[in-house]
Design a protein around this nucleic acid. Structure first.
Length: 715
RNA sequence: GCGCGGUUAGCUCAGUUGGUAGAGCGUGUCUUUGACGUAGACAAGGUCAUAGGUUCGAACCCUAUACCGCGCACCA
């Protein structure tokens, strides 16, 4: 017997050593796996943001994905789990900017583009190293030789290649359109990066001037100096007579020319049933301006300050301007009603800034344009189809409905960002005397030359590069062997909160660029919450660090605590008590081994197959295998736990003590059965608790054995 | 407003196609048995949110209601 077994199991002295053993074996890399493996199983790791260290959410996805990979590896698949990190453009830049401002009092403009990028690179490099070592601590059996970063050279080539292709196909266009502007982060953001916060607001009802015939309601009076029309519903009898008429008014010192229009977007039930149209500062109004050929004066600038008006307004913050206008309305006796309403305010997910809709010249992806190369389907079609035809299945499947709903409501995707960190828009401009004042545009992989060409200042939405992840990681646009072998990937395992951000866009890009789906299954996990059900966050200081858990209880215990009883798509609560329970389980496994570890000849295992206990075990093993195949890891883990502790240890071993004590043939038979079942249990336990099982495996007195991680799954 | 989840033991949650309700933690009593006290044995504890329906049979299927959570839209 190994002397280590005489003491309680100590994950601290074991886990690091075991991980090194695995890494040195080379088996993380599918090219090095034993036997001739044909069927592949591939997972692209959702790259964690390079903004910090890993938290329990990361620990959860690492655990689930590692379970899938280890299981398939033991089933003889050529398994690839490709790790990486995400440059997370806005999140990373704003974090570094904050740090620099705090320490040195300098803004990004003080530092300049080059210096800021240098600082961010250093920050990211540091975090990447921390994060990859954390992944190792969790036992992640991913292929480090293929590690990728969303902003490295290869991924940049993929980004530029697809940008050019989409531009040439007319799917990427530059347009002056209303966008979500974040005055705090000084950048645009996409619709999906908005979070709504409910707040109390006031709804004001008033007339522009005394002789104006219609009253309107708004919660943002300051935008009204940008009004060009009043819209009513076409069927609204109350205002019918005014449609088509035009009025000139002086509104708080600003001359306005107001046309009365009829538009079906207007809700006759809301407020007065008449809506002041402000094309430059409201998405709906912008679209109305399209339909009715209205001008679009901008009255608010990028700093959320008034850009028009007299001395009283010019340069004032929107909130100040609001009060000024309201008091003007009061003094002019134009204000008719003031009521408290609940309102959803759009804020930027990353910076918390209040979104100001503004017209800006930006790059967009057209989701409604027919693509010749793809049978005239639109990008929207390409996103929807694989789910409709069930080429891609979502687990749990009820998320499909949410997905369809989202695709239906999808608008063109604004992909340019006014920040410096990220893939720079691969477009160059120049205007020379030759071009007669008109700007010349070049879209390509690199600058067309030094003569007056200037690259677009903007960078791309971080999700643009992440959306290529399943194939950019495999070397696309080059036709690599990896791409041929491993794409489409098998499972995308991620959190439900990025179903749209990421999952949908990967489908879009893969369908468009390769004409094939990026993955066959989408496995969605929930959010890991604290014991009170709150999200873990820095401000609440209720986070649990996976490294602390690994240190205190062992990574195996942490993994089990995360996976047992956590059904796909549902949130879970984690507590130290739960984790402690699985630390005890690891010790249990250890002690069982101490009892079993008599020398047994594995050639006798064959004789034990018909044994009642062995048969019972294989029935349970079969159930567990079915759970594994159907992504019910929360059940599989619980079943093996139940069996090992409460059936095998509590009952079978107890009963075996007497039998073995009595000696004879029965004792020998029992010993063989126990050894066989135990070896098989370790295999089933391995994907869940890889460290302790591998350690025990190395001590088992079996003659023909490799690492447990490449042993054959019992079936 | 539209949609999606949830409501099961004191707490946290499982329950795969409808067939006598499960686990962990906690609680109580007992056991220094030779794998393990990080343990073992035994036990208490549930009209499965409510009301109807389908069925021989419902935690599970259908309808409605209530409450909790979430997504989308509106947000003039």
């Amino acid at each position: 017997m190994d002397e280590k077994l005489l003491k309680p199991y100590d994950p601290k002295t074991t886990e690091n050593r075991i991980y090194k053993l695995w890494e040195e074996s080379g088996f993380f890399n599918p090219d090095n796996l034993p036997d001739d493996r044909k069927e592949t199983f591939t997972i692209m790791m959702p790259p964690p943001n390079a903004t910090g260290t890993l938290h329990m959410g990361h620990a959860l996805f690492l655990t689930i994905e590692d379970i899938m990979i280890r299981y398939k590896r033991m089933r003889g698949f050529k398994t690839l789990w490709l790790p990486g990190t995400d440059h997370a453009a806005i999140a990373t830049q704003s974090k570094v900017e904050k740090e620099i401002y705090k320490k040195e009092g300098k803004s990004r403009y003080d530092l300049g583009r080059e210096e800021l990028l240098k600082r961010i690179d250093e920050f990211v490099e540091k975090n990447k190293n921390i994060m990859t070592s954390q992944m190792r601590v969790m036992g992640a059996s991913c292929d480090w030789s293929r590690e990728a970063f969303t902003l490295d050279e290869k991924r940049n080539l993929a980004v530029n290649t697809i940008f050019k292709k989409m531009y040439d196909d007319g799917l990427i266009y530059r347009g002056n359109r209303i966008v979500n502007w974040d005055p705090k982060g000084q950048t645009t953001i996409s619709d999906d990066e908005i979070v709504y916060e409910e707040r109390n607001a006031k709804l004001y009802t008033f007339k522009y001037s005394k002789d104006f015939p219609i009253s309107i309601s708004t919660s943002r009076p300051e935008t009204k100096i940008g009004d060009v029309a009043v819209a009513i519903h076409p069927d609204d009898k109350r205002y019918e007579q005014f449609v088509g008429k035009e009025y000139d008014v002086i509104f708080c010192g600003v001359p306005l020319h107001i046309k009365i229009i009829a538009d079906k977007e207007v809700d006759p039930e809301f407020g007065t049933g008449a809506l002041g149209v402000t094309p430059a500062h409201s998405i709906i109004d912008w679209e109305m301006a399209d339909r009715h050929s209205l001008p679009r004066p901008q009255v608010i600038n990028e700093y959320a300050k008034m850009s028009i008006g007299g001395e009283n307004l010019l340069g004032k913050k929107t909130t100040e301007a609001r009060e000024i206008i309201v008091s003007w309305l009061r003094s002019e006796n134009l204000l008719e009603k003031e009521e408290e309403v609940k309102q959803n305010i759009s804020t930027a997910e990353r910076t918390g800034g209040i979104i100001e809709p503004l017209p800006k010249l930006q790059w967009f992806i057209d989701v409604n344009k027919p693509i010749k190369e793809r049978d005239n389907k639109t990008l929207k079609d390409l996103m929807r189809e694989p789910f409709e035809k069930e080429k891609i299945k979502i687990i749990p499947d009820y998320f499909s409905k949410t997905y369809f709903h989202w695709v239906e409501n999808l608008r063109d995707w604004c992909i340019s960002r006014q920040i410096w960190y990220g893939h720079r828009v691969p477009v160059w401009y120049r205007s020379t005397t030759l071009t007669a004042g008109k700007e010349e545009i070049y879209v390509g992989m690199k600058t067309p030359g030094n003569d007056n060409w200037k690259q677009d200042e903007d960078t791309l939405d971080t999700w643009f590069s992440s959306s290529l992840w399943t194939f950019s990681t495999l070397g696309w646009p080059e036709k690599t062997k990896d791409l041929e072998t491993f794409h489409p990937t098998d499972v995308l395992e991620t959190g439900y909160e990025i179903l749209f951000f990421w999952v949908a866009r990967m489908v879009l890009m893969s369908q468009y660029a390769l004409g094939e789906i990026p993955f066959r299954k989408v496995f969605l996990h929930g959010t890991v919450r604290d014991i009170k059900g709150r999200k873990m966050s820095k401000s609440l200081n209720n986070g649990i660090d996976p490294l602390d858990i690994a240190d205190k209880f062992g990574a195996d215990a942490g993994r089990m605590a995360l996976v047992v009883g956590t059904a796909p798509g549902t949130d879970s609560k984690i507590s130290e008590d739960k984790i402690r329970g699985y630390k005890n389980f690891a010790n249990k496994i250890w002690n069982i081994t101490r009892f079993i570890s008599d020398n047994v000849d594995e050639n006798d295992f064959e004789s034990s197959i018909q044994n009642k206990l062995t048969k019972e075990f294989y029935e349970i093993a079969e159930e567990i295998t079915a759970d594994m195949e159907n992504y019910r890891f929360h059940l599989a883990s619980e079943k093996i736990y139940q069996y090992v502790w409460h059936r095998f240890a509590d009952e079978i071993i107890e009963e075996s003590k007497k039998i073995i004590k009595n000696g004879g043939k029965k004792a020998e038979e029992r010993k063989i059965a126990l050894a066989l079942i135990w070896a098989e249990c370790l295999k089933i336990l391995h994907p869940f608790m890889p460290f302790v099982t591998e350690e025990i495996w190395s001590m088992l007195p079996l003659k023909e054995k490799s690492l447990l991680m490449v042993e054959k799954w019992p079936s």
